[in-house]
Design a protein around this nucleic acid. Sequence first.
DNA 1: CGTGCCAGGTGCCCT
DNA 2: AGGGCACTTGGCACG
Lengths: 265, 265
Amino acid sequence: MVEGSVSMNHPQVKVDPTFQEVESIVSDACSRGCFTVLVADCRVDYHGRSSSKMGWGERVVLLKPDGSVLIHRRTGFEAANWQPPGCCITFSQREGELVIRADRRKPRETLEVICREVALVSSVLLKDDASLDMLISEQDLYSVLRANPDLIEPGFRISSEQKGLGGGKADLTGLDRSGRYTVVEVKRVAADTDAVKQLYRYISQMRETSPDLRGILLAPNIRPAAKRLAKSLSVDYRTVDVAQCAAVFSKNSSKGLDRLDRHFT
Amino acid sequence: MVEGSVSMNHPQVKVDPTFQEVESIVSDACSRGCFTVLVADCRVDYHGRSSSKMGWGERVVLLKPDGSVLIHRRTGFEAANWQPPGCCITFSQREGELVIRADRRKPRETLEVICREVALVSSVLLKDDASLDMLISEQDLYSVLRANPDLIEPGFRISSEQKGLGGGKADLTGLDRSGRYTVVEVKRVAADTDAVKQLYRYISQMRETSPDLRGILLAPNIRPAAKRLAKSLSVDYRTVDVAQCAAVFSKNSSKGLDRLDRHFT
DNA sequence: CGTGCCAGGTGCCCT
DNA sequence: AGGGCACTTGGCACG
């Protein structure tokens, strides 16, 4: 692959553009479904579910073709301000300032980026058909557990998955080695007290029809507080080695089974 | 304000850079605390708390001077992949590909952005000292309620705020018009069932010492399910007009009182 | 560090 | 539209 080849769409770039140039580049970008990056000295007003003001400063503004807007500051993972996809973006100039306004309905929210200077505007048509494949989601854990119910407990037999209750659903239900009806709550990350409460709620509901019911909290590890709560509520907990599951899952994946699992459950 | 003036730091920009140029620009940017934007045809591997793979496609990569990395796709509010602040970013080239690697410890997580082509690299030193002032946070509601306890209930007297219990804290406690001890849970947004449960947990705890205790859920509105649960648990609910509070709050703010409130509570 | 809780949480799926 | 819940949730404050 030769660097600087023509295989990628060339971005349109302008350093120190006039507001006119920004408007024309961005309007053009929007109409062509381009992704726009601005570097601007701006202030930001937001009103909606909450309300925020941010004074003058230099930030990176992303305008996506789906109508989402992100204002990123120099540091931090999260955008300082934003507007979700589907909002309506309009430009205007007033008193030597370029105003980028992003409006949303339901809920009614407005975002105004007031720029007094734009250092860079760049727009590019991004070609991206790839899928983002997340592994080791809770779904993936189910796949592995379905194929290896012994990972839950030796001799365990799964009878249902995502069994809907009145509000919420039990991750797994089945019969333990001794044939006792059991509801299993699966957590991909360390189980906290909420996980215990969640499981206990399911148990309480299902005990109305199946009085003799076990509960198992299955997670890579369990927080001390959750462990105590589980003990006090007579909820069993068991650890599951996520790395091991991942390995099993990958092996199945290489045989092309994961897709099937995902599509037919 | 003249557009294109020299008041903002000029961004360093290179279209269709070689990998060498990318490396040199970005290393330089990192050492000078610059914000870097890349437009690249890349694939992304992530391993850590979860695990993901994303095939080839064109994306916008943000490298922040605090060590955070964001990979944004053409659409969507959320970054497809990321690394939070504080991670270690390294570059390498292998087989005609530029690999940007971002490593994090605790938890151990790795992110690899493998680029086969970079369409744009730009780095700029962002000057930004402004604060992001969020209004109508729960804190702000407290401020207003503290000054206008009648908004909770006519004749209400607040006696404590953020009263710490064993695990969790009661937003407000006080005495209602008839002198009955009351705990108030304040929500800035529509109260859901979790809010009711939270309040009920506090009530249950505090009833051990104060058997005759009221609970009030205070929120702009209350979800039907939460309303039902509140009724069944004998928890009172009251609406608070957030817009009205915001107005009161703004008025106080203009008198410079909000800062004091914020600092001395 | 664990625990709890807010956040303009967002997103997904289900009824 | 409401409900329940996962998310690489992130972020903050407090004991």
